[in-house]
Each structure stands twice: as C-alpha cells, then as structure tokens.
Simulated scan of single mutants.
Amino acid sequence: MRKYLLLLTLSAVLVAVAFKPVRRAYSYAFGQMAADRQRLRNGDLIFQTSKSEQSLAIQLATHSSYSHCGLVCQQNGEWMVLEAIQPVKFTSLRKWVIRGKGDHYVVKRLRDADKALTPQAWQRMLAAGQAMLGRDYDLAFGWSNDRIYCSELIWKVYEQGLGRQVGQLRHLRDFDLSNPVVKAKLTERYGRNLPLNETVISPVSIFNSPELVTVLSR
C-alpha cells in the first residue's frame, strides 16, 4: 500500500512538472493579449497564418505567410474581429487569435488614423461591414458581393465606408500559380477554366500597403 501511494505521489509530481511550462506559457499569452487590447482601435486590421485547408496554397501563391485577415472592432465592451469565413461574422479576438498558427498575429492601422478614422467615419465603415454579415465565404475568390473572402471584406469596408483603397488590386494571373499545391487547389475550385483576369485582393497586398503602419506583432 505504501509503495502504491508513493507511486501515485511521484506520478502527480511528474504531471505537475510536465504541465507547468504549458500553464505558464498559456497564462503569459493571454496576459499579453489583455495588455494588447489597450492598444487597439476600431478599424485596425489584423493578420495571421491560418491553419485552414487552403492556407498553404494562398501562402505559396502570394509569397507570404499571412493567409487570413480581419477588421478589429469593439462590441459591447469586447474586442471582436469582423471576418469572412463561413459565413461573414464577428469572432471574439481571443478565439480569432488561437485559431491561427502559433497564436501569432500582426495588427496594422492607417498612418493618418487620428485624422481619418473619426467616430462618424468608423460608423460608416461598421455599417458597410454589417451589411455583409451572413454572406457565404467565396471559395472562388470572385469580386462580386454575393460571396466574400477575407481580404475582399476588409478592402471593401475601407473603400465603401472611408473611400480608401488599402492594398493594390491585382488579377489572378499576377500570382505565382506554378506550385503543385496551388495548381491542385485551382483545379479543385475552377477545373480547367481559370479566371485569370478576375480582380483579386490578397492579404499580403493589404499587409504591405504603404498606407498602414504596424502597431502590434505577437
């Protein structure tokens, strides 16, 4: 009996030691996020490396690790991310962050946000975003408003609500479509008829916009 109790005690100690770094890292990550919330503003743009099935193809085609993005806003005292997944919706910042690879995220903001993002301007942007709530995710990356993908959503919110075009519009043919992973995903989506002239806005195009500055990188 004494030997059995000793084994139980030893096992408990080993488990506690094994999970201590995890708890510490978990506590640090969310403690840091709590501090980061104090630096956020309505209208900030947030980027991450998605763990979705199509993420690798997007990274390869655009030569960037950032494959998903959203619009930061405060709702009833809680920081949320307006994003185009399935469907377009608001997601809590915490849930959004932990869905990305390594919990890594970057937040960007207009260089002239103090002047341009007035409360009235933000309300126009928010209205533009809310008008797209519930729309299906656009697997074909078309430019119509019937279906919406992530970078298209935030580009159109800025264009419609603020009259600003954040990120350079391109065409599908402008991306690197040579990798087998990209080719397979394109064939899955379009078959043999690739819409090479389709207007596209990628996460990295917005990320690299000279109109934006980085305010957070975790």
Rank of each mutant, 00 (worst) to 15 (best):
L169N: 12
L60Y: 01
P119S: 09
I201D: 04
P210C: 09
S151T: 00
Y158H: 13
F30M: 11
A131I: 05
Q130W: 08
A61S: 08
Y158G: 10
E211C: 03
P203W: 10
R173I: 07
I206Y: 01
A84I: 07
S65N: 14
Q120A: 11
L177D: 13
K183F: 04
S11W: 15
V181F: 09
Q86R: 10
Q86G: 11
R164W: 08
N76E: 01
R111K: 11
P180T: 13
R135P: 03
G31M: 03
A184F: 05
W79H: 07
R164A: 10
S178P: 06
E53A: 12
L45N: 00
D174S: 12
H171Q: 13
I148E: 09
D112E: 04
V22Q: 12
S202G: 07
E78K: 13
Q123N: 02
L14V: 15
M125N: 01
A184Y: 05
Q86K: 12
A184T: 08
W155I: 06
Y105E: 01
R135E: 02
L172H: 05
S55P: 02
K115Y: 14
G70N: 02
S65D: 15
K115N: 14
G100S: 04
L196G: 05
S67L: 02
Q130E: 09
Q54K: 07
A61D: 04
S27G: 15
D146T: 12
K89W: 04
L60N: 01
L82T: 03
L139S: 14
K108Q: 05
V88I: 00
A29M: 15
D112F: 02
A57V: 03
E53W: 10
L126A: 09
S151H: 00
L71V: 06
V204T: 14
L212Y: 08
H68I: 02
P87D: 02
P195G: 08
L5K: 08
K101E: 03
S202V: 05
S64H: 00
F207K: 04
K185T: 07
K51D: 08
S178M: 05
A131L: 06
E211M: 06
N193I: 11
R94P: 12
N76F: 00
N145F: 12
D174T: 11
L45Y: 02
V181D: 07
T214R: 02
G102T: 00
R37F: 15
N76V: 00
L169T: 14
K108M: 05
Q59H: 15
M125C: 01
R94Y: 13
W122S: 05
A35G: 01
L5A: 10
R39M: 10
W96K: 04
R135H: 03
Q86W: 11
V72Q: 03
V81F: 09
Q38H: 13
N179L: 06
K156F: 08
G129A: 04
N179P: 07
Y149W: 00
Y137I: 05
Q160E: 13
W155Y: 11
I206G: 02
D138E: 00
N179S: 10
L196D: 05
L5G: 08
A121E: 04
P87M: 01
E53H: 12
H171K: 13
A12M: 11
G31P: 00
D103F: 12
V15W: 12
L56N: 08
L126S: 07
M1Q: 14
L153E: 00
Q75P: 11
L14E: 14
H68E: 03
P21I: 10
A116E: 10
